[in-house]
Every structure is written in structure tokens, then in C-alpha cells.
């Protein structure tokens, strides 16, 4: 934190980061309530991991593309996808980001630079390389960022993608959100060498390990990586150490494979609480203004539910449309 203070994050960015993270957390909490009511049909909560995409997306423009995973609500919110459309999508409504055809694991909004969440572990990684290839061929100065979990580190396509990105010097940042568990399997068991970041070495790209529960640290680490990509100097692999507070999915009881002590340890390093201290510490905000931000987040989330509730389900013809762009 002292190091971050020296380099500094400007006030508006810092406030945006807090607002983004608190909005995400309240959105996810609301999703759980909607699921409990049977309106939202299953999801993977990102609570605890909000800092990772927030610190990164602070550096991104609309033209930059991000790609996510089955657990991607936090990526979407950090990239500016509309909350109303997100909630409508989760409730299967016609007004959703994907017109109700994608749901929680596939939210996409290419105009906002969200090139889609992907439910197959690791599957999105080469797609990000392709988006970066477009940027290079079109000389657009755009970058792409792909988020994946520690589970994806076991997928071969990650290494194919890192290799392609490196030999072609593509503007892509690989971000592993290491939340320690691939479903119920701990990374200590499944990952030889116990480090994702180290695996970058063989691909001739920087591999950095970051405290993913600190949005300030995420901001600084990703700033360098994104600048490097944007200036044509190739890819970076970031391993963000983080923790999901809830189970893999809604009904998963995580204490069957992890301990209360471990959960308490990571929750003690909560990204939102730490950002709150940072804002006060830096003189950017105070308790009262922070409460206002919390309220603003809650209002936005409540509005998204209202919007989704009032939206219609898709017409049944939608089952058959958009299988193809053109199919006479």
C-alpha cells in the first residue's frame, strides 16, 4: 500500500474502482436472492474477486475487448456492461444483453468491449488472441484481456495461445484469477510448480504474481501490462491471487473441501474493505460519502431487478432465430 501511495491513483479512478466493486458485490448478492426465488436459474458468484477485473478495466477503452468465464459478472460490470440488461439476461428476458439466449455464463456486449463469457474452461483464451490479432492487423491500438481461472491452467489451449501471442507479439494480457479452487479441487493438488506466473518464462513473456484482493495492486500491475500490449511489445501473464467467498455454484457447500479458518483469512483481506481504507487514507472520500456510494450501488441493482421484472420473455420464435446470420 505504501508503494501504491507513492505512485498514486487519481481520485476519480479510485472512486470509480470502489463504485464498480461495491456495485458488483451488491449485484451478486441480489442475484443470489433472485436465484433463491427461482427467477434466476443458476450462477457462479464472483463475490470476493471484484478487484481483479476492476483494477484492469480501469485502463481499458470501449474498443478494447475482454473475455470472461463461467464466473464473469464482475468482468462485465467492470467493463461497463449495462446492469439492467445484465439482470434481464439472467432472468431470461428479451431485453437482456443476449436477448435471453445466453444467460449467466455467456453475457456479451461487443460494443462495450465484452466479447463474451464462455462456459468451457480455457475455451475463451485463443479467442482473445484472435481479437488481439485483429487489433494488430487493423493497427487499431486496441488490446484484449482474457480472464480465466486456475482451473484453465490445466488446459493445453492456454499454452497454445500464449505461444501464438508471444511469437506474433500480440496485444493481449492473460489474467489468471487464481481463486485457489477449480470447482472443488485445490490448485495445490492440480498445479505442478504451484505457480501460474512462472509458466510465462518459457513463452518469453513477463509473468507476474499480484495480490488480486487489492485493487490498487491490480491497477498498478495491469497498467504496465496493458501499456506494453498497446505499444506493440507483446503479451503479459498476470496471476491474480484471489478467493471466491461462495461455493463454485449456488448450491455448492465449500466447507466440504476448505476450512472456516481459510475462509476467514481471505475474508480478512477483503478487497472492498481495503479500498474503503485507501479512499479515506488518500483523502479521496469519507465514511459518509462511501455510504452514499454504497446506496447508489444498491439503487442501481434494485433498478436492474425492476427493469428485468418488467421486461417480457422472448417470443418463442427466438428459439430459431440467429442460429445463422443468413440461412435461406
Amino acid at each position: 500500500m505504501t508503494n501504491s501511495k507513492k505512485t498514486g491513483i487519481d481520485k476519480s479512478t479510485a472512486l470509480w474502482m470502489y463504485q464498480t466493486m461495491i456495485t458488483t458485490r451488491k449485484f451478486e448478492a441480489e442475484c443470489r436472492r433472485q436465484a433463491d426465488q427461482g427467477k434466476l436459474r443458476g450462477m457462479h458468484s464472483s463475490i470476493g474477486q471484484e478487484a481483479v477485473p476492476t483494477g484492469i478495466c480501469a485502463h481499458l477503452k470501449d474498443g478494447d475487448q475482454i473475455l470472461g468465464t463461467h464466473r464473469s459478472h464482475h468482468h462485465c460490470i467492470a467493463k461497463g456492461v449495462n446492469l439492467n440488461e445484465m439482470m434481464a439476461e439472467l432472468l431470461g428476458k428479451a431485453t437482456g444483453t443476449n436477448k435471453g439466449k445466453g444467460g449467466t455464463m455467456h453475457i456479451a456486449d461487443i460494443n462495450k468491449g465484452m466479447l463474451g463469457a464462455n462456459g468451457v474452461v480455457g475455451s475463451n483464451i485463443p479467442v482473445a488472441v484472435g481479437a488481439a490479432l485483429t487489433a494488430k492487423l487493423k493497427k487499431s491500438q486496441n488490446v484484449s484481456v482474457v480472464f480465466f481461472g486456475d482451473g484453465a491452467v490445466g488446459q493445453g489451449v492456454l499454452y497454445e495461445s500464449m505461444n501464438l501471442a508471444s511469437i506474433w507479439k500480440l496485444p493481449v494480457v492473460f489474467v489468471c484469477e487464481n481463486n485457489r479452487y477449480a470447482e472443488a479441487t485445490p490448485f495445490e493438488y492440480s498445479m505442478a510448480g504451484q505457480s501460474v506466473a512462472k509458466r510465462a518464462t518459457g513463452f518469453d513473456m513477463p509473468g507476474i504474481n499480484v495480490d488480486g484482493q487489492s485493487v490498487v495492486e491490480m491497477y498498478h500491475a495491469s497498467k504496465i501490462a496493458i501499456q506494453k500490449a498497446r505499444s506493440g511489445e507483446g503479451p503479459t501473464l498476470i496471476e491474480a491471487m484471489t478467493y471466491r467467498y461462495q461455493g463454485h455454484f449456488g448450491a455448492d457447500p465449500p466447507l466440504t473441501y476448505r476450512t472456516e479458518e481459510e475462509e476467514a483469512l481471505y475474508k480478512s483481506k477483503d478487497c472492498i474493505r481495503r479500498m474503503k481504507s485507501y479512499l479515506i487514507d488518500m483523502g479521496y472520500s469519507d465514511e459518509e460519502k462511501i455510504l452514499e456510494m454504497d446506496e447508489k450501488a444498491q439503487i442501481a441493482v434494485s433498478e436492474s431487478v425492476k427493469f428485468a421484472d418488467e421486461s417480457p420473455f422472448p417470443n418463442l420464435e427466438e428459439l430459431h432465430t440467429e442460429v445463422y446470420v443468413k440461412y435461406e
Partner: peptide
Amino acid sequence: EDRVRDTPISEAGFIGAGVGAAATGMRP
């Protein structure tokens, strides 16, 4: 060589990259 790209033997990698390039405005 920008438009005629030899790839490593990485079918999942470069076909996936083709999908990403297609999604973002190219016709690979």
C-alpha cells in the same frame, strides 16, 4: 506474411484465434 500466416502446430490455438479475429471484424 501478415495476411498469409504460418502457424505452429496448434489447431486449437489458431482456429480459436480465427474465431476471435472473425468476431472482431476480420474474415479469416
